[in-house]
């Protein structure tokens, strides 16, 4: 065995980049198309409840779902967490809430940001409305965020 000190360990920066496309299918495709028109839709299950975002197949029974229904655009905050220091990747530059929002007419909650200005303005059960992006593209970020319904 050599008792010489080991040489420098080699390392290299290695970036693997790869591009993808996503085919969303007819149900989520409809959801995104409606967002572009500033409308929000869900899907009705056999028991009458409505899922938002819509699912192609019932999460319990596995049955195919096809009855698209309009929901919201307003709703209530079902649960939330305050983000004190937003990072560059967050949707808002100032403190905001991540919230589960139950849109009017829906039985499930949608995750989105709420711009309430201050944590003290947030509460479970508060009513919110979407703030739409100026140029919509057919994606979830067409809703910039939600804001308190009474806000000007």
């Amino acid at each position: 065995m050599s008792d010489a000190a080991p040489g420098p360990a080699f390392s290299a920066h290695h970036v693997v980049e790869y591009t993808y496309r996503r085919s969303v299918g007819p149900v989520l495709g409809r959801f995104f198309t409606e967002l572009r028109e500033r409308r929000i839709v869900g899907i009705r299950r056999a028991d009458g409840t409505v899922l938002v975002p819509p699912a192609e197949y019932d999460p319990d029974s596995g049955e195919a779902l096809d009855e698209i229904v309009s929901v919201g655009p307003t709703g209530v905050v079902a649960s939330w967490a305050w983000v004190r220091q937003p990072s560059a990747k967050h949707p808002l530059e100032r403190p905001f809430a991540w919230a589960l929002i139950r849109l009017d007419g829906a039985d499930s909650s949608l995750l989105h940001a709420v711009d309430a200005g201050h944590e003290s303005a947030m509460s479970t059960g508060m009513r919110v409305r979407p703030r739409w992006r100026e140029a919509t593209r057919g994606e979830i970020h067409d809703i910039e965020c939600f804001e308190p319904e009474g806000a000007s």
């Binding site: 085919s23 299918g25 007819p26 989520l28 192609e56 197949y57």
Partner: peptide
């Protein structure tokens, strides 16, 4: 098959 999602 852009007519279907991975689910479909």
């Amino acid at each position: 098959r852009i007519d279907v999602s991975q689910f479909g």
